[in-house]
Each structure stands twice: as C-alpha cells, then as structure tokens.
Simulated scan of single mutants.
Amino acid sequence: MRVVVSGGGTGGHIYPALSLIKEIKKQNPNAEILYIGTEKGLESELVTREGIPFKTIHITGFRRKISAENVKTVLRFLKGTRVSKKMLKEFNPDVVIGTGGYVCGPVVYAAAKLGIPSVIHEQNSVPGLTNKFLSKYVNKVAICFDQAAPYFPKEKVVFTGNPRATEVMNVDAKAGASSVGLDQNKKTVLIVGGSRGAKPINDAFLSVIDEVSSKDYQILYVTGSVHYDAVLKKVEEAGSPRNVIIKPFIHNMPDVLGAVDLIVARAGATTLAEITALGLPSILIPSPYVTNNHQVKNARSLEEGGAAIVRLENEMSGIRLLEDIDSVLSKKESWESMHQGALKLGVPTAANDVYQLLKDVSS
C-alpha cells in the first residue's frame, strides 16, 4: 500500500496525520508513505523528526477580505497543483489523504484530477475553507464531530474520530507522572494553554496562587515557552508552593495525560480527541482567536455530553477557575459523571477507522 499524506500549519492537523501513519505502518509494515507539506510549516520539523519521507510545495492561504495577496495565492495554488501532480506521478500512491491546512489544497486537488482515490479528514466541528473546497472532489470526508457533517456532501461523510485518540490509549501513566515530578498519591490538575501558552489563563492562575497552595491536590502548569520565565518568577515570589509544578512544555503529553485527574485547556480538536479517549474530565477555555470560532463549538459539544465545563475567556477569573476545579475534584460523583461523559464521546479506534476507510477507498 502506497499512501500520500498531507497536512500542515498547526499541530492540530499534523499530529492526527502522524498518528494515522503509525497505525498504517503497524497494520501494514510494508506500506510506503510520502508526506507532502510546506518547508516553513511546523510539519517540516515534526514529520522529518519521525523519519518519514517528506517533500514540500509552496502555498499560502486565502485572506477572508478582498486583497491583492489572494491573486498571488491563486497563482501559488496553480503552481502547487502542478508540482503536486509531478510528485504524485513519481510516487504512484494508491490513496491520498489530507488532514487539513492550506497545503492540502493543491495536493488533494491534484490527486482528484489524476483520478487517484482521495480522502480529507476534518478534525473540527466547523471545517475550514480548504476542506470545504476539497470536499467537492474527494471520494470520502472523515469527520470527528457530528456538527461538521452538514458542511459536506452527505453521501461522502464518514464518522471516524481523530487518529490521535488511538495513540493515547497506550500511555504509560507511571512514566508520565515520574517525568514531571508528580506525586502519584495526590489528585492532579493539568493546566495547559497550548504550545505557546495563553496569557489570560496564566493571569487567572497567578491571581490565586496563594489559595492554590492550601489545596490538597497538585497542579501541573504548562506555561508555554514564551511565558515560562514570567510565570515561574511569580510562583517563586509566592513561595514556590509545593503542590505546584511549572513546566514550559511537555513532549510526552499522552503519558502525562494518563497521570492526571482533570485538565484545564483550550479546545483544539487534538486535545479533545485525547481527553475523550481517556475519559478525562475537563474545564475548557476556548481560544477566541481561531477561524469561525470553532474552538467554542468544539468545546460546547463536550459540554453537551456532560464531559466538560466551558468558560469563555472573558468569563474567566482565578476565583472562578478554582471554584470549577473544586466542583469537579471535591465530589466523586461529579468527577465520575464527567469521566463517563467523556468516554462516551471518545473514539479510541479512530486511527484504525481512518485506515480502513483508506483501504476501502483505494480498493
């Protein structure tokens, strides 16, 4: 089996692709993979680090306002399509899958025009422009939220879930706890604002650092490298509470997730796939700075399923954050109800489901 995978821009598009590739290689060790991304995107670092064959095209996204830059984008798309066709003819794949981001546009479109079976994978509840465009040309559209279905041709939609969910099912919670210095006999709250952190969450947490020090649970706070020094200084000024651990970034996040009882986080699709697969209760603070406000819609789907508490950024304060944490951890019934709600929304077989879809489409 020969598969071309394309996805880029953010980890939310790249990590599901990497999880899918691992599943393909697990089930079909002889499978050959080619990843097509951009040279400057995050995928160039993450994909090559995994030793996956990687090629690049140059492409940018459309601006939502009328702009001369959009003319250049059209020209880049046309050139990217020509380059992609050449790559696809050389590699001769059985199937092509796009996991999101601008780079998928030329790659998947080229596959469709060459008659190569193709699939797009939409992680969010509200799809972006690229996947909406590509849905007209691909064979199937894999989705992770039922709310995304109306945006695509009904006959093409298949619910698979996010391949990243499968990866967290094999976590080593003990190793995760040890790697960041957690006391495994204490309940643990993980607070994380994404790879670059989130200043409003930082500010809320720091405003109640004195109250945090008296709690019987421990907090693992992942600040993002940009904010790490400032947050660490404030925590040290507060006496460096013994139940607070500060980290700039965590590379083994799936293992660490297996070691915590509650997560406070943004509502990116990959994060939600991970925590629902594990049945991890959450307090979600959606980023207001994303296209189509899709993080709010992602988060609301968990809230409706009883798996999460959702707080908009403009509603967030340190006191409210502590009240929400206490409301989940102080009552076993509350935690268990959210745990079960998350499990019901999780799709631990997602990587296999997407792999089987690729096999079906290519056969």
Rank of each mutant, 00 (worst) to 15 (best):
T271S: 15
E32N: 11
G101N: 03
V244L: 15
R82D: 05
E304R: 14
F62I: 10
S240Y: 08
K332H: 11
T60E: 15
T130M: 10
T81H: 08
I275Q: 09
V212G: 06
P29K: 12
V310I: 11
P127C: 09
K233G: 02
T38C: 07
P93S: 02
Y151K: 09
M338H: 02
V244Y: 09
F62H: 04
P254W: 09
H339N: 13
V347W: 02
V208T: 10
L262G: 07
F152S: 07
T349I: 12
A68F: 15
K215C: 03
L232W: 08
K247N: 02
A351M: 04
L329A: 01
E39R: 15
A177M: 01
E315T: 08
R164Q: 13
R311W: 12
K65Y: 12
A351D: 06
L88I: 07
H251Q: 14
A204S: 13
T130I: 06
I21H: 06
T270A: 13
K344V: 01
P53T: 03
S282R: 01
S327D: 11
L46C: 03
P29V: 04
L114Q: 11
T271H: 07
V361Q: 03
N124D: 10
Y109R: 08
W335C: 06
G51Q: 00
P288T: 00
I283C: 02
K89N: 12
V235S: 01
T56R: 11
A110V: 06
L206P: 12
N252W: 08
V83F: 00
V107S: 15
R2Q: 14
S362A: 15
L272N: 04
K79D: 08
A350C: 08
K174A: 13
S282L: 07
I209A: 11
V3A: 09
I191L: 13
R49P: 00
D255G: 02
E315I: 07
Y289M: 02
P254A: 08
L88M: 10
E50A: 13
F145P: 13
A230N: 14
E155S: 13
E237P: 07
P93A: 01
G181W: 02
N202R: 05
V107T: 14
T349L: 09
R311V: 15
A259Q: 07
I59E: 02
I283S: 04
V119F: 08
G80K: 01
V47Y: 10
L114S: 10
S6C: 15
L357F: 07
V126H: 00
S301D: 12
H339I: 01
D146W: 00
K89F: 03
L284A: 01
I116E: 09
H13M: 03
T276V: 05
N92K: 14
S317L: 05
R266L: 02
K233S: 13
A269W: 00
T160Q: 13
V256L: 07
L284C: 07
S125W: 00
T130C: 08
N162L: 08
E23P: 12
L280R: 12
E90C: 09
D216K: 12
T56I: 09
A265T: 15
K65E: 14
S337I: 04
V354K: 00
P163C: 01
L88K: 02
S135D: 12
N131C: 03
K359H: 11
